[in-house]
Design a protein around this nucleic acid. Structure first.
Lengths: 145, 145
DNA sequence: AGCACATAGTTTGAATTTGAACAATAGGGG
DNA sequence: CCCCTATTGTTCAAATTCAAACTATGTGCT
């Protein structure tokens, strides 16, 4: 394991970092047109798949953001009426975050064009076979264990 | 081009976003131990390959950050004596940023373990053949033109 | 029960990032 | 040369992010 990267390795590393940056930038710009930051959208998207609500800590872990950052953004979304927070029946410390009807409406307004953008910038730029390899390869990156 | 993503496509999208997040998080943590933010490190790394200096706008474009953000971080690095700024001989508007000797020292202290980390978390987690596919596929993501 | 430790979420203040407005220089056409 | 527009970099205020300290609740052990 030498402490240098050859040209191919360096190119792969930069490709990953640049692809992530460029895609994030494009997505951020698109979401801004819908009045959402990327973090806010990812919160709504994650809540969209859960009728029972999601606890703050789990939400922060899933979205790879800090707990304090989530507290701030959950507060912003709550002010706008897109999510609600209620303490968990089982654990008095835990707060379950839910999508409100209004939040669900914003999500379904935003999701189709978000998906179209992801398809245009990422999915449709490579053959399906390569996409599968990328999926499996990236799933192992920086994964614990 | 439907406005939904099938399971494979969704998995690939999340794999890219999550891989980027996890790798960034690990890299950020490592660099913090060397007294650098990721943006600061990327500035030093980019300057490391250029003896003539790099203009602010070009630097911001290469690193996919805003110009004002770069102004701030270049100022931080200049205060610490790691970079210097001087107006370009050719264009009076342009500012060329250079690595100082001290900046080069910090870079060469940090780079080997950074590279080792990238190798451990990314490069060494997939066969070389897949790495090449990932490199080529990601190079096309969200690329203009 | 009582104590120690772990976990959930918030608060706080500082650092960073952003977008818009701004000042200065460059370049092209009349 | 003069105007018009584009480009370069900075400044400013506001928004966001972070890490550390903090409060409150759960869990296990004795």
């Amino acid at each position: 394991m030498p402490n240098t990267l050859d040209d191919d390795e360096l190119a792969a590393y930069f490709a990953l970092r640049d692809a992530g940056s460029r895609l994030q930038r494009a997505v951020t710009k698109h979401l801004h047109g819908h009045g959402l930051t990327e973090v806010q959208f990812s919160i709504l998207a994650r809540l969209g798949g859960s009728e029972e609500g999601v606890a703050m800590t789990e939400l922060a872990r899933d979205l790879v953001i800090t707990k304090s950052g989530l507290t701030y953004q959950a507060g912003q979304l709550e002010i706008r009426g897109l999510v609600s927070r209620q303490s968990s029946p089982g654990d008095e410390r835990s707060i379950l975050v839910h999508l409100t009807a209004q939040g669900a409406a914003v999500l379904s307004e935003t999701l189709p064009s978000h998906v179209a953008l992801v398809r245009e910038l990422f999915i449709d730029r490579m053959p399906r076979q390569d996409l599968m390899i990328v999926r499996d390869a990236l799933a192992r990156v920086a994964r614990d264990g």
